[in-house]
Amino acid sequence: PKDEAKKKVKEAIKRGDEETAKRIAKKYNLDWDDAKREADEER
């Protein structure tokens, strides 16, 4: 599900692992900028 994928993307971003985050986002066709902004807001 997309929500689960987005959570994984945000967790990867918070760990500083943007490569993984981008790969997950691409795989699930998520909006990378959107997920990154959300992760930054939660930090």
Rank of each mutant, 00 (worst) to 15 (best):
Lys7Ser: 09
Thr20Gln: 10
Asp34Gln: 13
Glu18Ala: 05
Arg43Val: 14
Val9His: 02
Lys26Ile: 12
Glu42Leu: 06
Gly16Lys: 03
Lys27Asp: 12
Arg37Gln: 08
Gly16Thr: 00
Lys6Trp: 15
Lys14Gln: 12
Asp3Gly: 09
Ile24Tyr: 03
Lys8Ala: 15
Ala21Lys: 00
Glu4Val: 12
Thr20Asn: 07
Asp31Tyr: 03
Lys10Gln: 12
Glu4Thr: 09
Asn29Gln: 09
Asp17Asn: 04
Leu30Cys: 02
Glu41Trp: 10
Ile13Val: 03
Tyr28Pro: 02
Lys10Phe: 14
Glu42Val: 06
Asp31Lys: 04
Glu41Gln: 13
Asp34Leu: 10
Trp32His: 02
Ile24Arg: 00
Glu41Thr: 10
Glu4Ile: 13
Tyr28Leu: 02
Lys36Gly: 03
Lys7His: 10
Glu4Asn: 08
Arg23Pro: 01
Lys22Pro: 00
Lys7Leu: 10
Gly16Asp: 03
Asn29Met: 07
Glu38Ser: 06
Asp33Ser: 08
Val9Gln: 00
Arg37Ile: 07
Lys7Glu: 13
Lys6Asn: 06
Arg37His: 06
Asn29Trp: 04
Lys26Pro: 01
Glu41Phe: 11
Pro1Met: 14
Ile24Val: 04
Lys26Thr: 10
Arg37Trp: 08
Arg15Cys: 10
Lys6Val: 11
Leu30Glu: 01
Tyr28Gly: 01
Lys14Trp: 15
Asp34Arg: 07
Glu18Met: 15
Arg15Ile: 06
Asp34His: 06
Thr20Glu: 15
Lys27Thr: 08
Glu18Arg: 06
Asp33Lys: 06
Glu42Gln: 07
Glu38Cys: 00
Gly16Asn: 04
Lys27Tyr: 14
Asp33Cys: 11
Asp33Gln: 09
Ala21Asn: 00
Glu38Leu: 06
Glu38Gln: 08
Glu38Met: 05
Ala12Leu: 15
Leu30Lys: 01
Ala39Lys: 04
Lys7Arg: 13
Glu19Arg: 09
Arg15Gly: 04
Ala25Val: 04
Ala35Arg: 01
Pro1Glu: 15
Arg37Ser: 07
Asp31Pro: 07
Thr20Arg: 07
Ala39Ile: 11
Asp34Lys: 09
Lys36Ala: 07
Lys8Pro: 02
Ile24Ala: 02
Glu38Arg: 03
Ala12Cys: 08
Glu11Pro: 00
Glu41Arg: 10
Ala21Glu: 00
Lys6Met: 15
Ala5Ile: 11
Lys10His: 11
Trp32Gly: 01
Lys6Thr: 06
Lys6Pro: 03
Ala5Arg: 03
Tyr28Val: 02
Glu18Tyr: 15
Arg15Asp: 05
Thr20Asp: 09
Glu38Ile: 04
Lys8Gln: 14
Ala5Gln: 06
Lys7Gln: 13
Ala5Lys: 03
Asp31Leu: 04
Lys36Gln: 09
Asp31Phe: 04
Lys10Asn: 06
Ile13Arg: 01
Glu4Ala: 13
Ala5His: 08
Asp3His: 12
Arg23Met: 13
Ala12Ser: 04
Ala5Thr: 04
Glu38Tyr: 06
Lys6Asp: 03
Lys2Pro: 10
Ile24Trp: 05
Lys26Trp: 08
Asp17Gln: 04
Glu38Ala: 07
Lys14Glu: 10
Asp3Ser: 12
Ala21Trp: 00
Gly16Ile: 01
Asp31Thr: 04
Lys10Pro: 01
Gly16Pro: 00
Tyr28Asp: 03
Lys36Leu: 14
Ala5Asp: 03
Glu42Ile: 07
Val9Gly: 01
Ala21Cys: 02
Leu30Tyr: 03
Asp17Pro: 00
Glu11Arg: 05
Lys8Val: 09
Lys6Ile: 14
Glu42Phe: 05
Asp34Pro: 02
